[in-house]
């Protein structure tokens, strides 16, 4: 029974990812007084791309097509660690959050190679910018997770979530506030959202992620876009699980699970509104202003660690 629940939440995270994108886009359109596209549009786009043919540059190697597929698999695997409505992730072991971070790093590594294999300047350009972001994102990401792990004296995500869930809602520690701020900044940058990257742009010279995948088309592009949506879903789910796990089900009763699902949807809704509002009132950062975000995130996460250690004493 529990394994079914763990599997169900894993599959839910994968399948709901495009819907999340659609909801954010629609909400942003409404904020701009436009009607906006249907929230189901990302599914239609994926379906369209899956039906199209896969264009491969003549100079490319097999890696060009393997990269998005493997990267997709790695991103999917990273999702398996997350508890969202049921308190156990599909996979869970000591140090799993490090594996999560590095699975995403591996996915990006492959996509950067795929960009090089395309053989155009745009791919290299996008990859080099992505490299800058990923190089700088990893340290604050790991540091803030370490801060939480140390605070919870736990080695796995599931254990951290369980510990946080056992705390009093009103007794939230400064560690959580700091780590939350740091992780949010990293999540924005990692998922290529504003103000770091513009997911809707068509200008090949300004893009980060989109320039990197410029050579891709058809099913390969569909997997890349889906993986990108999953990554956004993953980051939001991670933030919710780590900082607002209250209500997550741990007993196998229909009531508890339904409550947990309801609460999760509410939390997710708040996240969607927050993203849409934020993205509507800022401009994209200058490229070399992006590292400053990571500087702030790193500082916040180091502070979180310092407070964790002080709290223990």
């Amino acid at each position: 029974m529990t394994i079914a629940l763990r599997l169900a939440q894993f599959v839910f995270l994968l399948l709901s990812a495009p819907l999340l994108l659609g909801a954010i886009t629609r909400l942003k359109a409404i904020l701009q007084r436009r009607r906006g596209a249907s929230i189901w549009r990302p599914y239609a786009e994926l379906g369209k791309l899956f039906r199209k043919e896969d264009l491969v540059p003549g100079s490319a190697s097999w890696l060009f097509r393997a990269a998005p597929r493997l990267a997709f698999a790695l991103t999917v695997t990273a999702v398996a660690f997350l508890p969202i409505v049921w308190s156990n992730g599909l996979l869970s072991f000591a140090g799993d959050f490090i594996v999560l971070v590095y699975l995403l790093a591996f996915a990006r590594f492959l996509m950067m190679l795929g960009a090089f294999d395309g053989g155009s300047s745009f791919g290299g350009m996008g990859a080099s910018r992505e490299a800058m972001v990923s190089v700088l994102a990893e340290a604050p990401l790991v540091l803030s997770l370490v801060a939480l792990a140390v605070a919870a004296r736990a080695g796995s995500l599931t254990a951290i979530v369980a510990w946080t869930g056992a705390q009093d809602f009103f007794n939230i520690s400064v560690v959580h506030v700091l780590a939350f701020a740091a992780l949010t900044l990293v999540a924005i940058a990692e998922t290529g959202r504003l103000p770091v990257d513009n997911p809707a742009t068509h200008l090949e010279l300004t893009m980060l992620h989109e320039a990197m995948v410029l050579e891709y088309s058809g099913p390969s592009l569909a997997l890349i876009e889906w993986a990108q949506a999953i990554k956004l879903n993953l980051m939001i789910a991670l933030l919710i699980a780590l900082f607002a796990p209250w209500g997550i089900a741990s007993g196998v009763t229909a009531g508890a699970i339904l409550l947990s699902i309801g609460l999760y949807v509410v939390k997710l809704g708040i996240a969607i509104v927050a993203i849409a509002v934020l993205e509507s009132c800022v401009a994209k950062l200058r490229m070399y202003a992006v590292p400053e975000i990571f500087g702030i995130a790193a500082a916040l996460s180091i502070l979180a660690i310092v407070f964790t250690l002080m709290m223990k004493r």
Binding site: Q32, L194, A200, T201, L203, S280, A283, K284
Partner: peptide, 16 residues
Amino acid sequence: LSGDIAFMLPAAYCSR
């Protein structure tokens, strides 16, 4: 110009 820096709100209003 606003659209180019991904600040879509003024871009949408200016189009209107």
